[in-house]
Write a protein that binds this DNA or RNA. Structure first.
Lengths: 227, 227
DNA sequence: CCAGAATGCGAGCGACTACTCGCGTTTGTC
DNA sequence: GACAAACGCGAGTAGTCGCTCGCATTCTGG
């Protein structure tokens, strides 16, 4: 009889999450926190599961009680980060109000993403490295595509005559600038970090402003260089 | 008697390059080429010495006849790349003629670096990864510092009133933009690649142009967007 | 209170790594 | 042609990695 409840359970839910006690949930959170720390300082590939377990103060066997393999740790971490990002900054991904001045729109988006990344440095660490595993890269690509599409929409409202290829290219350039800026911002602290944030915004605004032409807004309000 | 010629040889020249036959030099070039290919597709850390030897069509033992360890392969590769870059594009690092229009100066430098990187993709691969070994990172930092200094000099001639901190920050931003642009350029081919090159130049020119103020040159000659 | 599940441990397994060693082959030199 | 040095090989070494397994402990539903 192949239809015993056990068999059905194993066949139906591909990876039915076994019943967890409160203790287990705490361990999972603890392990993910440790993994974030280790990933952040070593990158994904160089991070060893034994090191993660040690950082969390548990044995390797305990780690594998809650995660089937190393990749699953990164995936779960990525899922939680994505979820929190969508929950906290979902508005930053929404189509922008065409009445908003360009400088304000760019500034707001950059501020939000920089705030999220400085609070969760592991997010950048996992996205940067070329050593991220299969499903992780997929998630990254998905986020990347989402952002490119949003930027394309914004640019399309500014440049109705531009071709789709041009819009896509410009969107990729904007994302590239933002990513390079993130790296610079994260390597500085305090006032210097603030200065870099302003600089990144200026780069984006000056790149996009000539394209906007005669638009409503206050183009002179952009932050001026100290010189 | 510790002063036998053999002892002196071992003590004096730290790693006296043993006498090579023409065959050996060929093998070294062959191994470096194979290493470049493997580093390029896997990054430094993920590249295995056995894979490099296999790619070169030799045994692991042969590889270690010419290189003391894995790091030495990357270092020798880096040294040869640096040497070739300085030899070929040394002029691009020299102080710019203040009479050159900004757009031309930026365009020339970007063109040269992009040409070098597309011809030697392993250069970018080794510089990008966070997994590069000790001396490799030092070389990268040295090149980075050199470039920052050159850009600071250029910016200083444009903005005599700016503070040193501001100049350094702007130089880092310029380098970051260039690096991000390189990544975009390398992931495209043909006409699309050309379009990205133009875009990167525009980003830099529009970032720097407002700072130059009323300068001689032909500011309207910069490439216009297709829109 | 007690059976069974969830949790926890850490020695250990197989696979992979950078790297070595002993021995045979090729090459330059006198 | 002989001798030494350079070249070439590939099985083998020690170490690390992700991951497993058997067994002890703690929790929880009935």
């Amino acid at each position: 009889m192949p239809d015993t409840p056990e068999t059905q359970e194993k066949d139906r839910g591909k990876e039915q999450p076994r019943r967890r006690q409160a203790r287990g949930e705490r361990r999972i959170a603890q392990l993910l926190e440790a993994a974030a720390s280790v990933f952040c300082s070593s990158g994904y590939a160089a991070a060893s599961t034994n090191a993660i377990a040690r950082e969390a103060g548990v044995s390797p066997g305990t780690l594998y009680q809650f995660f089937p393999n190393k990749e699953a740790i990164a995936i779960e971490l990525g899922d939680r980060l994505m979820h929190e990002m969508r929950e906290t900054y979902g508005a930053a991904l929404a189509p922008v109000d065409p009445a908003t001045p360009l400088a304000d729109a760019v500034g707001a988006v950059v501020d939000r993403f920089i705030a999220f990344t400085t609070e969760h440095p592991v997010f950048f660490a996992l996205m940067k490295g070329p050593d991220t595993p299969g499903r992780m890269a997929e998630e990254h690509d998905a986020l990347h595509s989402t952002l490119v599409t949003r930027i394309e929409e914004l640019l399309g409202s500014l440049l109705p005559d531009a071709s789709a290829a041009d819009l896509t290219r410009m969107a990729h350039v904007c994302l590239g600038i933002h990513k390079a800026g993130l790296e610079l911002v994260l390597t500085h602290e305090g006032a210097e970090r603030e200065a870099y944030v302003r600089e990144v915004k200026d780069v984006l605004i000056r790149y996009l402003e000539p394209l906007a032409g005669a638009r409503p807004g206050t183009p002179d309000e952009r932050s001026a260089p100290e010189a």
